[in-house]
Amino acid sequence: MSETDDGNFMKQVVSVEYDTKPSPQQVAYAKDLARHRIVGQRCPECALTYVPGSGYCPICAVAIGADGHVELEARGTVTTFTVVNPVQYKGQQEKSPYVVAAILLDGAGVALGHQRLGEVEPDDVRIGMRVEVEWAEAGAANPIAHWGPNGEPDVPADQVQEHVL
């Protein structure tokens, strides 16, 4: 038991530690990504492609096996984004504003979330903007450095509004 500052409080002294293993689907996705391949999973019933896949289609409640694996081009459309203004707390690595976006890859049924954009000023990012991947140098923790504009004309925003999440 711990000492108390006053009679009304006591410190909690217990904790639970987790040693969580990634699922087989997460392991496979990460291995492919390290080889600069983006592999999604296509539902055998509704044909929606999930990136990354979880081994099942949550809409149809069916498993997606190895025969449903499909490789996608590392190219897509920004469906939503946010500009992060990094607070300079201790340990903060980011110095200037940057953009995190959801990207609907060509051929995918759901957007890939939490993707860093680069080669573009935050003020110039648009919903519907076309982007492609910039791979990181070998050995980086995240094989994707960022996604940058690929010069193609924007997709009308209303065409991607169902893919914000």
Partner: peptide
């Protein structure tokens, strides 16, 4: 079950 198997994938074929 495979290492890291999710509860969802344990349940899907069971249900």
């Amino acid at each position: 079950q495979p290492e890291g198997q999710t509860e969802t994938l344990m349940l899907l074929p069971t249900i």
